[in-house]
Design a protein around this nucleic acid. Structure first.
Lengths: 117, 117
DNA sequence: TTAATATATGAACAATTATTCATATGAAGG
DNA sequence: CCTTCATATGAATAATTGTTCATATATTAA
């Protein structure tokens, strides 16, 4: 990220070296941050909240979330690319649903945290 | 969010009304999205990852995360405002640590999800 | 084939945000 | 008091991103 380090003295050498050597890889941290980024948008959270209850088509989701078909379609694409939802086509209609229980779990742990504050 | 609704026919009236009436409040969804937004940045995730192991001062964190003092200081402020970390001052040095177990839990569930994909 | 409907998508725009740079604050020691 | 060091912060910049608008694709029905 930076080639030049902070000019501060590293104050706690032992602790710092121990922590540094036990840090998760940049790749993993990046991927996890990207995952949470997906959850970090109200529109997408509304979509997930709705899909938690039922499989729904694009048009249903747009209505439920008070959003436009286009905006929802864009967000559904992002959610699908992130493998948080999956889709099923039936004629003209595309039905979306949550990809797995993990998604629900992350959603709920977020709610819990907010409610406990 | 929008005053004008999607022009699509709502295809599944019953399901849609049921889901709509059981949606979490916009406020809660907004707050949860804001929470995940905080986790949705690599620098902040690195900070949390480091603090998960030990209480650390700004300078330590900057070194561990290969970032600058200023960048870290800005991000620490955001994390603190979100009540994900807390601080303790000792002379010139400010020590930061995770605010509670929930933070750790959210962090870990994110990692689990990534590792399982 | 043509019209209608559900969904997808590209480009443009506006808004948000992370980092950098310069500088301010605040505490400790001389 | 003055200097040094750790941290904080304001402004500017660059990059990312969500929505909108217009339009394309694809499927069904007439």
């Amino acid at each position: 990220m930076k080639e030049e380090l902070c000019e501060c003295t590293v104050i706690h050498k032992e602790t710092v070296e121990k922590v540094k050597s036990n840090m998760l890889s940049d790749e993993l941290i990046f991927d996890v941050a990207e995952l949470f980024k997906i959850f970090g948008d109200s529109t997408r959270m509304k979509i997930l909240c709705a899909l938690k209850m039922s499989e729904l088509c694009v048009c249903d989701i747009a209505y439920i979330t008070n959003s436009t078909q286009s905006a929802i379609s864009h967000q559904l694409r992002i959610l699908k690319q992130s493998k948080l939802i999956r889709s099923r086509k039936e004629g003209k209609v595309v039905y979306y649903s949550l990809a797995d229980d993990h998604v629900e779990k992350i959603f709920e742990i977020g709610c819990e945290h907010i409610e406990e504050i």
